[in-house]
């Protein structure tokens, strides 16, 4: 596994905002998403909210030096508050809002039972231990009720957190995705080819060329 690194140095998909790669509808949609502040929550109460933030920090960790971390928790809360559904739910799981509320409370209860502190007060190692146990289905605190923890973890925690994270332009820049593309799409589709409006990957030992290219994508 390659460790996470600044693979597309200087690339910011938002610099393409006023280029032909973005249409008006896309600008509206992204402006709304970027307007969701990191502390904004309407659906979850404060206790659930702090637990959710602590969960998201471990499921989709962000670089410590990232100036504006992706507000993953706020994006999840936004989904719950606006009632956007996935179109299905497993028969063992309650509705998404109820599942999240119960699951977050249960994770917090598990933390207090195992470590004597709230989930958000735990260090990374302890949080991961609890999440791994949820994933494996080995948690059994009464707070879970009849909700299977493994299904909660895969069907709600992973699904919602990952979708929220990779719906954010900062994540697109991180993985070198071209971002919105309409009316302008792409021309060069072969191996190892990129259009001048696509992210340039830093080749080992030579980030300079990539930086130069990446500063030009918005032109």
């Amino acid at each position: 596994m390659h460790p996470r690194r600044d693979l597309y140095p200087g690339y910011d998909v938002l610099t393409k905002r006023d280029s032909p790669s973005w249409n008006a509808k896309t600008r509206d949609v992204l402006a709304e998403r970027l307007g969701i502040g990191p502390e904004k929550h309407r659906f979850l109460d404060d206790e659930e909210w702090t637990t959710l933030k602590a969960v998201c920090d471990r499921v989709v960790p962000q670089p410590a030096d990232r100036a504006d971390p992706i507000p993953v928790a706020a994006l999840i809360d936004h989904k719950l508050a606006t009632g956007e559904h996935d179109g299905y739910r497993h028969a063992d799981l309650p509705d998404q809002g109820e599942a999240w509320r119960r699951g977050l409370a249960a994770l917090d209860a598990e933390a207090r039972a195992a470590y004597g502190a709230g989930f958000h007060e735990l260090g990374a190692w302890a949080r991961d231990e609890l999440l791994k146990a949820a994933e494996a289905g080995t948690l059994a605190h009464p707070a879970w009720g009849d909700m299977p923890t493994a299904k909660f973890f895969s069907g709600r925690v992973l699904a919602d957190a990952v979708k929220a994270y990779y719906a954010h332009p900062t994540a697109w820049s991180e993985i070198g995705f071209g971002g919105p593309a309409s009316p302008r799409g792409y021309v060069r589709m072969d191996f190892d080819r990129r259009d001048p409006w696509e992210a340039a990957e830093a080749k080992p030992g030579d980030a300079g060329e990539a930086i130069t290219q990446n500063r030009r994508v918005g032109r």
Binding site: V162, A167, G176
Partner: peptide
């Protein structure tokens, strides 16, 4: 696309945490 790919890596490949974000790169 990215969120679909992230969901696949998480849901089907079972990745999360650092393993997920580095694999996504």
């Amino acid at each position: 696309l990215p969120t679909q790919w992230g969901s696949t890596q998480a849901g089907s490949h079972g990745l999360w945490g650092e393993a997920l974000v580095s694999e996504m790169q």
